[in-house]
Design a protein around this nucleic acid. Structure first.
Lengths: 153, 153
DNA sequence: GCAAGATGATTCAAATTCAGACCATTTAGA
DNA sequence: TCTAAATGGTCTGAATTTGAATCATCTTGC
């Protein structure tokens, strides 16, 4: 019934526009809180979060880039900034001398602790608390599938 | 049961991460297609889309900025680029001499026609076709509510 | 053991984005 | 009618992002 290039149906269009708008607006809130409470961009925050939960609090640059979904050159810049702020440090990896470990410092962990409560509050207020538990589950399942599909390419 | 700064429950966390990841990945696809097929960024494309559906194919800069959800200075830059490419033109507004109309040109409309089929295909393949009709509806309702809440601030 | 290609990361210049200052006009209020 | 505040846009310099080029190190296949 719908060819690939046809206009979206109203229901589809509504979903697409809501998806776009919610993405923009929520991210804007998140960005604002992180900047205000810790001087961090959202991407920088994500870097710290991933490092925190990694074994030995460290990851190789390219794995980190993959997880945070940023380009390699962008990550290089961000890690440089974080390093300058003392929140992360770089170490050479002995087994593969091409790669570089980015490692969370104690200051980095502390910075994370400082902003995380506010961050959670924003995620709650902007997204979680606005949805019913059923919606939460369905959102997780549906958008999880969307993300998985796009990752496996 | 949940205080504002507590960690998210697993179900909530899954939804939040899926929301983030899907946002990034879908936007990446959209960006890629628009750049490839028409040399447009997603934001530029949105500008053209809004102008197309506006009365007289034109909007004042600040209304446009509000609709596309970009800062005023960013829109100034983007419209300058689009104008340079001949897809949009600026006109002074006679009733309020502060404001400026951004108006879609015929070339702009043509450019839109050129990229739109591909754009729809991407939205279909990345999002719409991955979801059931029920999920589409629920996504529209739930995220529509999220967006509305954040807009009314 | 070695050349050719893959991989990990950085660098560079150009393009874009940001935040705030700024200018012109309009609106409201005394 | 004036003036202070609000609004609409642009501009500026600094920060960030992009994409291609580069460099060094691994891996493969011979």
């Amino acid at each position: 019934m719908n060819e690939a290039g046809d206009a979206l149906e109203p229901r589809e269009l509504r979903a697409w526009m809501a998806f776009l708008a919610a993405g923009h607006l929520v991210d804007h809130e998140v960005e604002r809180q992180l900047k205000r409470d810790g001087g961090l961009s959202h991407a920088e925050f994500e870097v710290l979060v991933r490092l925190r939960s990694a074994a030995g609090r460290r990851l190789r640059m390219s794995d980190l880039a993959r997880e945070v979904m940023v380009s390699k050159s962008r990550l290089t810049y961000q890690v440089t900034q974080l390093e300058r702020a003392g929140l992360v440090k770089r170490t050479g990896c002995p087994s593969d001398r091409r790669s570089v470990w980015a490692e969370l410092t104690d200051d980095g962990a502390a910075a994370l602790d400082r902003v995380r409560p506010g961050h959670r509050r924003v995620v709650r207020e902007a997204l979680v608390d606005v949805l019913t538990p059923e919606e939460i589950d369905l959102l997780g399942a549906a958008l999880g599938r969307v993300a998985d599909r796009l990752r496996e390419r």
